[in-house]
Design a binder for these strands. Structure first.
Lengths: 242, 242
DNA sequence: GAGTGGTCTAGACCACCAC
DNA sequence: TGGTGGTCTAGACCACTCC
């Protein structure tokens, strides 16, 4: 009678994927409360404990945020505490103020070989390329070149960017309904070329961090590819290992 | 009647700290099984579920490793799957082979200002300084300078290092009973000086990653400070963000 | 078959929040 | 005061490992 099930999946994982579906479908939007554990338990015909375990995992993955006494919320990049969730750069003097994003350029193009591979789209498909500067106080510290699938980001323009004071991902979430879930960064050291040096106010040839990031939305779908050049004269990239 | 308890700590956290104590005291050694959940529940006079929750957290923190049907084990850097747990450097060609550690120098010194601050010891306290090369295949990729508190690492010498084929942390664990729990890395970009360039076989001035790491054992006690210079010509530092 | 961790349930009570 | 998540318990059963 043993099931011999190589695809065995516990109930709470099935519930988890049902909740995930509801999130993907937009049934509950970022920043909003989702139904209480008891309600979800009734809806899915399982015990509260099973829903609880599903939500536990999703909270650990930063998809949901629990607030005791209030409810469980859909994680949002609009939340001040999560605005620069993926930015690991920290000032050496310990200043905790948020950086400011300054858009430089924004134009349309067709995906080349690299962009198509990174974004999982066809070569020649429309993309949007975006350049921006990140400033801590008055100091320019990062220059980013960002590649986005044109199909998803229709209508993105310099005007859109200039009228936004928060983080890019909060803009993407609010304007394009796109939620960034996780990212992967590949870091190398490179020398500043002349134009980059000018933008970051460092000498040509200065060593910089090259940070290539691919960002994923639901279903592990890549929706952003960017390359950042970080000046580490007064900042460093902080990483916790465990 | 409300408790107004700013120091409220749920039972499972108290159990967790009791298990932590047992780990620290060496009651169970790395790689060994700890008692079953049921046994621990009896020992601490709580339900199995409470022990379970305590162990869940410790497993999430990589302190314990659960193995269904077998038991729960104390995490160990001797475990092949965890040998280079803290090394984020990955070859660009996707080669998965483990790096090899080649000791270069090992000498005794007194802690200067920086080492004493990083290691939380007195200035002038004895330290051991260690230099080593990390090779992927035949390629030299990382050169590390490692500062260790002399008090803990008594007897560490070139002979010790040369007679060891695994990772440094597995040596530390086995020979000095010191378990590395977590670490914090600060990454910057720097230019190779002449001697570093020679060691890594790159031209002087080549941009390198400077990775400063402080490593902690139980009780958040710092026990290692190191600075690594990474050649990123054929490798990159990989970081997962979520 | 015996022992381990893994899942699921049901119920009681606590801590926190809003009204 | 009522609703939410958070803790704790007890018991049943499942999946995995080893003998």
């Amino acid at each position: 009678m043993s099931q011999e099930s190589p695809t065995f999946s516990p109930l709470y994982r099935q519930i988890k994927s049902l909740i995930l579906q509801a999130l993907e479908s937009g049934e509950w939007r970022p920043g909003q409360v989702i139904p209480s554990e008891q309600e979800l338990a009734t809806r899915f015909s399982v015990s509260q404990g099973t829903v609880r375990k599903a939500i536990d995992e999703m909270a650990a993955e930063n998809l949901l945020v629990r607030k005791q006494g209030k409810g469980t919320y859909v994680a949002s990049h609009n939340d001040p505490r999560a605005m620069f969730r993926f930015l690991r750069l920290v000032p050496m003097d310990g200043d905790l103020s948020h950086p400011q994003s300054v858009p430089l350029d924004c134009w349309r193009a067709k995906a080349g070989q690299e962009a198509s591979r990174m974004l999982g789209i066809e070569q020649g498909a429309p993309i949007i390329i975006l350049r921006r500067l990140l400033r801590f106080g008055t100091k320019p510290v990062v220059i980013d070149e960002i590649y986005l699938p044109g199909e998803i980001f229709q209508g993105l323009s310099m005007e859109t960017l200039q009228g936004w004071s928060g983080s890019l991902y909060s803009l993407f979430e609010t304007r394009f309904g796109l939620r960034m879930i996780r990212a992967q960064e590949r870091i190398r050291a490179v020398a500043a070329d002349r134009s980059t040096g000018e933008a970051l106010k460092v000498a040509e040839g200065t060593p910089l961090l090259s940070v290539e990031r691919v960002t994923y939305t639901y279903g592990d779908k890549p929706v952003e590819w960017r390359r950042g050049l970080y000046s580490t004269a007064e900042h460093f990239y902080l990483n916790e290992l465990s």
